[in-house]
């Protein structure tokens, strides 16, 4: 099941103006991605952890998410230290586990997880529909917002349709395995998904036209930038400026 795991709640992070969340998540991600010094990255990680704690999310769920998304990072820890030239920490037969590889892996791990945590705490704590309208207010073109909202609206429907098709296949004793029969079955299943999606799209669009649709979804919801949002904006900017300061300090020192 597709779920918006972290969107439910009433913590300070959930109450923050979604426009501020999007801007903050973008600036934080970009700044963390282009920083290189360990002190900066550790600060970023601490900021990320702090935001997740403030969002009062279920610890277990956040941990599970982190473990899943860190798959590629584990792979880097295996490969980078073995393939990078440099001073060996220890040797595995002919292969050297090098310090430079370890440093690079550690840097990537810190960056990646700091950004991940910030995304969970900031964008993860809003419903996608809310984010869509917020993006629209941030001057993202109507057309792509329309596409975004309609996609969001239908992923749940299509997912249920997929579950129904899979159930039907199971009832017919379909056992997936590594063979052509399995791939053919899945291909037909996905093909059916596309056929039904297209038929549905036509019906939906006609229904929308009947209701006077003119190219934009309107919302009655007004976003308000409150005093606490102002405080948040200052706090987050201070954190980001501190990160920038650390990065600049290091480059001037060494």
């Amino acid at each position: 099941m597709i779920q918006e795991t972290f969107a439910i709640g009433s913590s300070p992070m959930h109450r923050m103006d979604p426009r501020l969340k999007i801007v903050a998540a973008t600036v934080f991600s970009v700044q963390t991605a282009i920083s290189d010094h360990f002190l900066t990255l550790i600060t970023a990680l601490i900021l990320g952890v702090a935001m997740v704690i403030l969002a009062r999310l279920k610890f277990f769920l956040v941990l599970k998410r982190l473990l899943i998304v860190n798959g590629f990072i584990f792979f880097l820890w295996l490969v980078l230290p073995l393939t990078f030239p440099g001073e060996a920490i220890f040797s595995l037969g002919p292969l050297d586990y090098t310090l430079s590889g370890v440093i690079l892996s550690a840097r990537i791990t810190l960056k990646s997880n700091a950004i991940l945590l910030s995304l969970i705490a900031l964008t993860g704590t809003s419903y996608l529909a809310t984010l869509g309208y917020a993006l629209n207010q941030l001057k993202i073109p109507d057309k792509i917002i329309y596409l975004f909202l309609i996609t969001y609206r239908y992923i749940f429907v299509i997912e249920q349709e997929y579950q129904r098709l899979i159930r039907a296949a199971r009832v017919r004793c379909f056992e997936p395995g590594t063979n052509l029969h399995t791939y053919r079955t899945y291909a037909y299943l996905v093909g059916m998904l596309f056929v039904r999606a297209s038929a549905r799209a036509e019906r939906v669009y006609h229904a929308m036209l009947c209701r006077g649709f003119a190219g934009k979804f309107h919302t009655l919801r007004q976003f308000s930038f409150t005093k606490s949002d102002l405080v948040w904006a200052f706090t987050l900017s201070a954190g980001l400026m501190f990160m920038g300061y650390l990065e600049w300090m290091k480059t001037t020192l060494f």
């Binding site: 239908y154 791939y183 998904l193 036509e202």
Partner: peptide, 28 residues
């Protein structure tokens, strides 16, 4: 976006949703 007319966006959106769901399909 330029090549996508307004009356095809619903189609594109729902196909995009199917693409999203298809990427969740795990094959052995």
């Amino acid at each position: 976006l330029k090549k996508l007319d307004y009356d095809r966006i619903a189609q594109a959106g729902i196909l995009s949703a199917s693409f999203f769901v298809a990427s969740l399909v795990h094959v052995p």
